[in-house]
Design a protein around this nucleic acid. Structure first.
Lengths: 209, 209
DNA sequence: CTACATACCGACCATCTGGTTTGTCAATAG
DNA sequence: CTATTGACAAACCAGATGGTCGGTATGTAG
């Protein structure tokens, strides 16, 4: 019988789970302090692991940062924007909804106090490290492409103005969203986010046909 | 005759000049690497001074950072926005002009590759240190107030729509400007900045009466 | 000229930080 | 059962980093 196959999650000595724990803790620390401000010891303290474990799964600090972008942040973005905009007839409405949720404090992350994980990293690391920049840019491009496709679909469904330059609009929407979150983060004020997004929603409404 | 009064700048042992040199170098380093990434030794190497000089003029690293915000960044912002918008009958035109200049690469700083010094610091430090946050917020408020006043003046001169909520618009413009610069910085592309600001200019035009 | 304050030097220090190395123990293969 | 490998622990290291401190040179008031 050989006790074969495998039966459920192991509580100890589960490599994948350990890696995920490290990744998760690293994300939190990077989100709070930035990549340069993240300390490996803090990550390890949070997981209860040691240097050995960390350096078994990642060759160095930089790679850990890269993995956070590729595996956590990219997924999170996709989970929010790509998912919500798939097969939507009224993309503008969906975008407005997502932004409104954010401004209500209903986000998957603490946008007001901590900002957007993706943009935080972009602003900190893009000029400093090409590896980070490329990975982050990939995420922004996915986001942008998803917006473009949704807007084009909106045109086909007659909910978006035909003359709209989707590419241009998509990039600007992303810029504006990140800008609004940044304002809120600096003011540490949810109200600031609301004031700011109100204008953005107005702009979005102007794109309707 | 006692060689009295004082005659021009002294070449050595000029306290104010020394302080200014330190401040200047600190600004450059913070601009490139962020406050956390700035190393005092690098600042000193750049100025040719030593620890003694630095700690004579500033009690610690944090205070040096504060001084950069209060004395350099605040001044720079004022020098650009407040100056340009004073006594303007057509604020929207002026704002568009400033943004266009930026997108042409004619800025006082390397916006495309390095971002906006003020916003960089805001995104990095606001959640981490209340002292930084307050100082940075003060600069943003000055900027915002200057935009509000200009827009109100524009209303009086009939170049801006009467129904416009100036406060709201001002904050959004700042958010959008910073957002656009952020996009360009991540892409490390002047073209991206141009694409992004084009939409912003469109929005600004829509505020005209 | 004296006395004192200011401006600055440069060696020194404790701590932190990313990274390395060696060792241990469980799982799996043969 | 034994050999090997994967997963992790723990001690360790070198360099960096913010900060301190005693000293020195310069300017200035009396």
């Amino acid at each position: 019988m050989t006790a074969a196959v495998e039966s459920g999650p192991r509580t100890e000595r589960n490599a994948d789970a350990t890696r995920a724990r490290i990744l998760d803790a690293a994300f939190r620390e990077i989100y709070r302090k930035g990549f340069q401000g993240m300390r490996l010891d803090d990550v390890l303290r949070q997981t209860g692991l040691t240097k050995g474990a960390l350096y078994h799964h990642f060759p160095n600090k930089m790679s850990l940062g890269y993995a956070v972008v590729d595996e956590l942040i990219a997924e999170a973005m996709s989970g929010i924007w790509v998912t919500a905009l798939q097969d939507s007839r009224d993309p503008i409405g969906v975008i407005i909804q997502l932004i409104t949720n954010l401004a209500r404090g209903h986000g998957p992350f603490e946008a007001v106090t901590q900002g957007c994980p993706l943009n935080n990293l972009a602003q900190e690391m893009s000029p400093l490290d090409e590896g980070f920049r490329m990975r982050i840019d990939r995420v922004f491009q996915t986001w942008s492409r998803c917006l473009v496709e949704a807007l084009e679909a909106g045109k086909r469904h007659g909910t978006v103005r035909q003359e709209l330059d989707s590419e241009r609009a998509a990039i600007f929407v992303i810029a504006a969203v990140e800008g609004c979150i940044g304002m809120a983060k600096n003011a540490q004020s949810l109200e600031r986010l609301q004031v700011c997004t109100t204008s953005l929603v107005e702009y979005l409404d102007s794109l309707r046909s």
